[in-house]
Amino acid sequence: MNALRLIKGGVFGLFLMVFTLTSRHALANPQHGDVVPIITTEYEIQAPDSLSMGWNTFSFSNKGNQVHFVAMYRLADGKTIEDQLEHVVPVFETLMESLRGGELSKSDIGPFFEQNIPEWGLQMTWVGGVGLLSPGRTSSATFNIQRPGTYLVECYVKAPDGKWHTAMGMLKQIEVGSSPLIKSPPKADYTLTVTNSGVTGPREIPPGKYTFRINIDEDPDGFMPYDLNLAQLGSTPDLERLYFWMDWTNVGGLRAPAPVNFLGGLEHMRAGNHGYVTVDLRVGNYLWVSEVNAAKINLPFVVRN
């Protein structure tokens, strides 16, 4: 009888130990990925220095006075933030100065890049991030980081004087390690699909907190893939003005202040990838819209009781 009690006690003790270790592992490895706090101010991105591969959720708070976003991309092997600041960022500064001054036109941008940016400078791998977010707001996006390496998180909105936020300090290096944690994406309430023909998804939903899965199914021409930002519209929105503002190649494009309130979104990623955006929506008019070809790559929808 004593021996039997010892055996039962040993089995129970082993079960308890395994349960405790499993619970601790679950806490250290959240089911829906690591929640990564991101804060923007004028002009800084506060973020961890390192992340793990796999599904990561950026919980983004904009504590600045201008609209910001946090786009993440992997640099070419062997390159760092110092290389980006020395060889790439100044080229964009010179480009915008030349566009504002009339020395260059939008048709000159491609040749200008070929002549002034090193080959590796436009070979970044865009993996996601949180879209445009108005001051004082918070938002989140979940995306999959599939390769280790050196990444940058950037906000390239322009200040009221036209200067890139990137050049003012909004560029942060993050190292992604080679050992992924066990993670899974969140469950989506609705799905949006982005192609070269536009955006498909629901056009009317009730108010509430929802997670949207965003599929990027095709790539546009050029070095920047699609993103998708969520704009809160007024009763009589000026959509042509918004579409113009979304295009950074316009002198007034992406230049603070923004013409609408932005609630976040999913930053650039290549075709074949997807991410998730979680937002709390109230009654009103909204628009999903991309920086790339905004007049075509958009989806208006209404939140109605």
Score class of each variant (00 low, 15 high):
Phe112Val: 06
Val11Gln: 09
Gly128Ile: 01
Met124Asp: 12
Val277Pro: 00
Gln173Phe: 08
Trp248Gln: 11
Val199Gly: 02
Glu103Trp: 06
Pro186Leu: 05
Ser23Ile: 12
Asp77Asn: 07
His165Ala: 12
Val199Thr: 06
Thr57Asp: 03
Ala258Val: 14
Gly10Trp: 07
Glu204Met: 11
Lys296Thr: 13
Arg147Tyr: 14
Pro237Cys: 10
Ser59Glu: 13
Gly102Ile: 12
Thr94Asp: 15
Pro257Ser: 04
Arg304Val: 08
Val67Gln: 05
Met1Thr: 10
Val127Lys: 02
Glu175Thr: 15
Gly252Pro: 10
Leu281Asp: 04
His32Glu: 10
Pro135Lys: 10
Tyr151Met: 11
Glu103Pro: 03
Ala76Asn: 06
Glu267Phe: 01
Pro259Ser: 08
Cys155Ile: 01
Leu287Gln: 03
Leu242Phe: 08
His268Leu: 06
Thr142Trp: 01
Ala188Ser: 13
Lys187Leu: 06
Leu230Lys: 00
Ala294Arg: 12
Leu4Asn: 11
Glu175Ser: 14
His32Pro: 04
Leu95Gly: 07
Ile205Cys: 02
Tyr210Gln: 01
Thr236Arg: 14
Ile109Tyr: 13
Met224Asn: 07
Thr57Val: 09
Ile216Arg: 03
Leu95Cys: 13
Leu254Met: 14
Asn229Cys: 02
Gly284Ser: 12
Gly252Cys: 09
Val70Lys: 01
Ala141Cys: 05
Gly9Gln: 08
Val302Arg: 07
Ile205Glu: 00
Leu4Phe: 11
Ile145Leu: 12
Pro148Ser: 11
Ser52Tyr: 08
Met17Gln: 13
Pro206Phe: 07
Asn196Leu: 03
Gly198Asp: 00
Met53Tyr: 05
Pro259Thr: 11
Leu281Glu: 04
Arg137Cys: 00
Ser235Trp: 11
Pro186Ala: 10
Leu230Met: 05
Phe244Pro: 01
Glu103Ser: 15
Ser290Leu: 04
Glu204Gly: 01
Leu99Asp: 09
Leu152His: 03
Ile7Arg: 15
Gly78Met: 09
Ser61Leu: 04
Asn273Val: 00
Ile81Leu: 15
Pro257Lys: 06
